[in-house]
Design a binder for these strands. Sequence first.
DNA 1: CTCAGCTATGCTCAACTTGAGCATTAATGG
DNA 2: CCATTAATGCTCAAGTTGAGCATAGCTGAG
Lengths: 348, 348
Amino acid sequence: MSYGEVRERATRMDSPADPQAVGEKNATAGVEIGLNAAIVAVADNEPQVLVIRGETDKAGATDGLPFGPFSPLHHRTFEGGLRTWVKHQTGVELGYVEQLYTFGDRGRHAQAGDVGPHVVSIGYLALTDAHPGSDLTHGSWRSWYQYFPWEDWRRGRPEILGSTIEPRLRDWIASQPATTGQPITRQERVRICFGLEGAGWDEEKVLDRYELLYEAGLVDEAARDGRKAAEQWQDRPRLGQPMHYDHRRILATAIGRVRAKIKYRPVIFELMPDDFTLFELQRTVEAILGPHLHKQNFRRLVEGAGLVEPTGEVKMRTGGRPAKLYRFRREVLLERPAPGVRVKPGKV
Amino acid sequence: MSYGEVRERATRMDSPADPQAVGEKNATAGVEIGLNAAIVAVADNEPQVLVIRGETDKAGATDGLPFGPFSPLHHRTFEGGLRTWVKHQTGVELGYVEQLYTFGDRGRHAQAGDVGPHVVSIGYLALTDAHPGSDLTHGSWRSWYQYFPWEDWRRGRPEILGSTIEPRLRDWIASQPATTGQPITRQERVRICFGLEGAGWDEEKVLDRYELLYEAGLVDEAARDGRKAAEQWQDRPRLGQPMHYDHRRILATAIGRVRAKIKYRPVIFELMPDDFTLFELQRTVEAILGPHLHKQNFRRLVEGAGLVEPTGEVKMRTGGRPAKLYRFRREVLLERPAPGVRVKPGKV
DNA sequence: CTCAGCTATGCTCAACTTGAGCATTAATGG
DNA sequence: CCATTAATGCTCAAGTTGAGCATAGCTGAG
């Protein structure tokens, strides 16, 4: 299957304020299609995302997701186009690829005052077991929790929630106009999204949380897009590192999707080497999901679901008793309708 | 929130072979954006989808989904654009709206030999409790099982599976080239998708089943798109009514998505009147999902999940004992992280 | 060489959920 | 008034889940 020739070109990240820089062939049109990919790997128990470093603005360097124009003349399918330019641009061979969402809202994506060609970006999630640090020609790997520090619950509830996010959200709640016609109050939205007042943290609501922070004017992107920011919080610490355009939103979508997906599809193995110990698998799942999992139950779950089989080897030097090595059992795809790591967050 | 003025225009369905008919402003471009909506309602215990009748070809009239071009000049958001033109075109006020997928594969969407402007269509799912038969200005309501008869398991396993689909698929399996490099055989794909040999029917795999039938050349769209069809099956009965372009594929995506969604989001109530009996609710869920549900357990589930509350009224003339009327409990959204009708198909 | 320390792995148990069916209640139509 | 038809209530066995105790088998310090 040939997807046609591919133009190599710098990523859009190199010229973020210049909409004309993309898609010469389509420049006269009202609409251009761009593909954005959240490319995810796990290394050293950290969920890594491939970002392109942008130029430095007053707040420091701003990262963005890899971006490539889609030209129907060169690519037969979106996914084919994506795989090709990601390979050319970054050297990374993608494994699992899934379309996330098509973003086209004016005012959210574009810079303020944009009246030029409209860019519709199709967000993709891609998983790979590429070793971070290997042959990247552009871009670099970053922990996704840099951009979403409140999503990392592996060492318990993240500091930033109590210290910074909650106070700011309380202000936002307090400033709600009395004459609200909203079906649901700010207070209740915050409660649900952030699991306050006993509501429980739902690790899949990554996008909801980000959008709420955006709406409350608490992430840098909000101010940049012209949204009235919460004045009193203009100073540090800011809530996670911002990204170009709506890329952090796309990343939030991606994180939420992987977190949901690993529960009913064995995509976690896209992020693992061929052989692994059950605890390594658990660490990877925890890296993705955020919270700690109960070790013995995780083991029971994974083995019971027929997701893995022992290789017969053991891994020594674990720091304790040697651990059996396992591999993914592909046959599980033929046996169960929705195989996945059906974990629900428990205790350490 | 104003989405700007909207051009009223005939749906693309009126001129299916004329790619130039859409998006005058963008005609010079390589890419145009179209929005397709699978608009779903339930009436008389049938899941209905709003279709536009196309002109008659040799196989009879071919239906299509409502289609509207997206112009960034006129609409601020995709969803806003969608709601507006659906309202103008068909008179239907949409309730719940959700983006499904962006389709852009050449050769699948387009007519054979298409080298003109490329159309990227963004598929949407919309739910409404509009009464079929009410003020439709264009389009008409059709049971979605017209297009997917094998998905209707309410009266047991559909006839068409054993009588027609299985024999044809067996031929397809038998004709698999021996030198296959596929990781998974045709036989196993069929087994998983169609729940053969004890694999169990998964009502959410609507798209997988349709795509497999397409690949096997067993749906009319496959032959139309130039795919080598299974010669011996050119005659009737054909497998479900075909649709224009890739619209049946979009509808399959929509059906699969609703079937999955109602299990963890209370979207089923978008399809219900304000007050209803639990059995009416069950019938609606069954219409969507396909299979029969265990009545007492359904009741336990729905009440136990806090999804509904009694209105205090009863409905007489049920044919037996009067049934209590219930309404949707909106508060459930604030109480549970993922409220929905968590049914799993059981027996009658 | 031995034991403390550490991780892997095995096993148990109570609480809860789920699938299925029996039993009872309350209308309707002749 | 009774047979019929639904609606509704309840029980029970089997399976799942959350949590913790217990044992196994390395490594490194002393």
